[in-house]
Design a protein around this nucleic acid. Sequence first.
DNA 1: TGTACATCAGTGAACGCGCGTTCACTGATGTAC
DNA 2: TGTACATCAGTGAACGCGCGTTCACTGATGTAC
Lengths: 212, 212
Amino acid sequence: MPDNPATLKTNYHHGDLPQQAHQLALDILREHGDTAISLRALARQIGVSAPALYRHFIDRESLLAELAVTGFEALRDRLVAVDQTSPRRALIDIGLVYVSFAQHEPNLYRLMFGGRVLPKGVHPRLDKAGKGAFQVLEDTIARARDAGYVKPVPLSLMTAAAWSIVHGLSQLTIDGHLPGAEVEPQLAEGVITLLLDGSVADQQQNHKDSNP
Amino acid sequence: MPDNPATLKTNYHHGDLPQQAHQLALDILREHGDTAISLRALARQIGVSAPALYRHFIDRESLLAELAVTGFEALRDRLVAVDQTSPRRALIDIGLVYVSFAQHEPNLYRLMFGGRVLPKGVHPRLDKAGKGAFQVLEDTIARARDAGYVKPVPLSLMTAAAWSIVHGLSQLTIDGHLPGAEVEPQLAEGVITLLLDGSVADQQQNHKDSNP
DNA sequence: TGTACATCAGTGAACGCGCGTTCACTGATGTAC
DNA sequence: TGTACATCAGTGAACGCGCGTTCACTGATGTAC
């Protein structure tokens, strides 16, 4: 019992500040969005002076970047868990998992893809984490292509299309832009299916270049 | 010449404050994003006291909403200008125009679709303007469907897919998330084409429900 | 086993900043008779 | 044509706020001998 860290807390050396700050910031982010995160308020709630946080975070933006990193890692974890047996099922499921992540973590997702809050090329770990999640998507597509399941278009094109559609659907739904959109995941599956099978009616296929 | 308003400026009654404030705010938005817009700074630059702005804007958020409204109107104007002769060409072109708008006005686009900055249901004019732009997209799809060009899936589904893909591509490119993405508009056209014609290889079609 | 010392992780005070918004007001303008 | 009056569009001062960050510091901890 004397070795229980909780009992040994001296309250001077906190011992767990970075983790606790990270967690609390994540909670605030989830509930109120990135703009609601302030280092002073964070310190206040933890019961520590504001400058103490600077022992563990370079500045406010680094903390936000850390949150985004864990977001990308969580997203990646969920994506890699998708069963890859069937190329088609894998493609659909990875999209569904992606959209569902965004919908369950809208504020985290916004931070991850915000763009103006955390610009590219400033936080190496963040860029790397983003690439990691992206990679899973790309690998899945590459496998389906190698198996001859999807068309032999450039991988980067196919990936851009797939990512665009799930990212767009995520953003639109979490921001409430899709009017009267019936709820998930039927909509998501329908949308992804359209990208796979196409939107053009069958008898119209191969008439693509009919006008000059 | 005595009637020239510019000559009559008394500098007390400014005569053009709302328009000038709107324009300057738009310039700042374009260059530095929505967070850079401050009513005090705006007033300062115009040469007027800060409270003067409150004669014309309820509060800061209303001004932002106004900017977003003009953004949606500009987007709509460009979308309705698309030639509707060929269903296929119209679908592609409307997507290209959409993406190109986002890429030329990234900060305005972000404000329009930001979500957390300007929530839905608070600014009626904004909601209406957003619907107006959306409507053009939906109408184009409806026409193509009535002409039998696209599959007879629910209009809301097809619209969600189309909007998702152009919105997603817009967001990803303006935030620099597409790695090594060759420049526009080839990428955009390729992506849209995939949604129209499908991604699944031809010999694989109609094997969609192969596993239980 | 005890002690000197380096290092780590906190502290309080302060700098410098700018913001949105409200208040009571005044100067300018337009209008009715 | 002149004047009283309502209304409009500004003003300066102030409220209340909170922020990120730096500074010189001190208390706690771990380590070498």
